[in-house]
Design a protein around this nucleic acid. Structure first.
Length: 285
DNA sequence: TCAAGATGATCAG
DNA sequence: TGATCCTCTTGAT
């Protein structure tokens, strides 16, 4: 679930359900009992998302900070809330709604200064209007690490997870193991523009759909993807299946502990460029 | 019934 | 690089 678009939706949804009013807060599981007790009765002033981090400002001066990690989730429902099911770290409620947080890797209260420090170590977020893609570029162009690894580094840019990484690299026809310093500036600019567009669509729909019109199930006469909440994709978790474009078998490999997916034929660009050479002379394969 | 994974990140060595 | 944490779902046994 949680890539950047999920968190931006969450910020909107939490404010929609609880904004401008006092909340009832508790921690049925007990692990956030102190923090919840502190929030209880405070007015929710605003919510925001930066990359994969959710932040909410309360009238008492506290910032609620949530990071969903790999498995965290928030479920909304109409009041009155039922008995909590499973491990509910935090429940927010009012007259009309409730929301249950489960499985987050971070659920804590921050001061304003701590929030600032958190934001200072995040790279630009394609979903934020104030984001500067050049900040990410200045890191990428100097790094010998694979672009596939840099895209997932939240200090380089924030909000991109494994699905957007795989898909944006496919759409750029760039091999995920291309060293950052062998990526051309024009390629980076196209990828950033693409990420902005794909992730905005994700915020609107809650789905990650990355295939062009001519590659949809309807257009190609194949069954729609049905395994998860994701939409139609080119390579993410499609290893062993045929590429929609060239019919090669999609490959997978572990990189820095995460699964990488790519098409060996469509994504040959960049792989053989020599590190340190003039990017303009980078040879396409 | 139970282990393995999963759209994440941190820490030790 | 590997171990670890968080929770729930899926698929094998």
């Amino acid at each position: 679930m949680p890539e950047g678009h999920t968190l931006h939706r969450l910020a909107t949804d939490v404010y929609g359900a609880f904004g401008g009013r006092p909340v009832v807060a508790n921690s049925p599981q007990g692990r956030f009992a102190e923090g919840a007790a502190r929030l209880d009765g405070q007015v929710l002033l605003r919510t925001e998302a930066h990359g994969k981090h959710f932040l909410a400002e309360f009238s008492g001066g506290d910032w609620l900070h949530i990071h969903l990690g790999l498995i965290g989730k928030v479920d909304f429902g109409a009041a009155p809330p039922p008995e909590p099911v499973g491990q509910v770290r935090l429940r927010l409620a009012n007259d009309t709604s409730y929301a249950d947080l489960r499985g987050a890797t971070v659920c804590e209260l921050l001061t304003g200064d701590e929030r600032e420090a958190l934001l200072a170590r995040l790279g630009p977020d394609p979903l934020r209007d104030d984001a500067d893609p050049d900040l990410a570029w200045s890191r990428i162009r100097r790094s010998r690490l694979p672009i596939g690894q840099l895209l997932m580094d939240q200090a380089v840019l924030s909000g991109v997870g494994n699905v957007y990484r795989a898909e944006t690299l496919f759409r750029a026809r760039l091999h995920p193991l291309t060293p950052g310093r062998a990526v051309k500036r024009s390629e980076w600019q196209r990828m950033w523009t693409d990420l902005v567009q794909l992730m905005r669509y994700g915020v609107q729909t809650g789905r990650i759909d990355t295939v062009a019109d001519e590659h949809t199930p309807d257009a190609m006469g194949r069954d729609p993807r049905r395994d998860d909440h994701g939409g139609e994709v080119y390579v993410y978790r499609r290893h062993g299946d045929r590429c929609h474009v060239c019919h090669s078998v999609v490959r997978t490999q572990l990189l820095a502990g995460r699964n990488l997916f790519w098409c060996p034929k469509c994504q040959r660009t960049g792989l053989t460029r020599r590190i340190g050479s003039d990017p303009a002379s980078g040879r396409k394969v």
